[in-house]
Amino acid sequence: MKKTHIIILVLIAISIVVLISYTGDLSTYETISSARQKEGKFVTLIAKVDKKQPVEYDAVKNPNYLSFTALDSLGGSIKVIYHNNKPTDMEKSERIVLKGRVQGDHFDCKDILLKCPSKYKDDPNSTQRAVQSSGK
């Protein structure tokens, strides 16, 4: 067997080990109710902001505290606490991806990813909104 072949095999083995160990770090997409079952485990939620509930953020009091209620498509809801600034346009976003873990009664969020309406480029609804905001 040639040296190169041995090295190729070693590199492949390392890559496989790396990828297998990566699967251990992976989290999962959960619904709010299934996330509640897995309290303390790091999960990813896809939800939107419940507009009927208050969104609490006051930079005067604390610029690193945001709390709101998230609602998922199955109707589950949970209070979210995020120790960072409020992402712009969060309420308008039709879909937010929340990463964090359930802690007692609330979801302790580490990261929020927004998908803004504008990113749905060809969505007639957003176009409709854009045109109508002209009325003002």
Partner: peptide
């Protein structure tokens, strides 16, 4: 190999689509 590893990690959404899994990126 570095490319393959990066690519595999990036492809979890494709994997989800193919196999109906619900894998999300890790915490960090």
């Amino acid at each position: 190999m570095a490319g393959i590893v990066i690519s595999a990690k990036t492809s979890t959404p494709v994997f989800n689509k193919l196999f109906g899994t619900k894998i999300a990126p890790p915490e960090d």
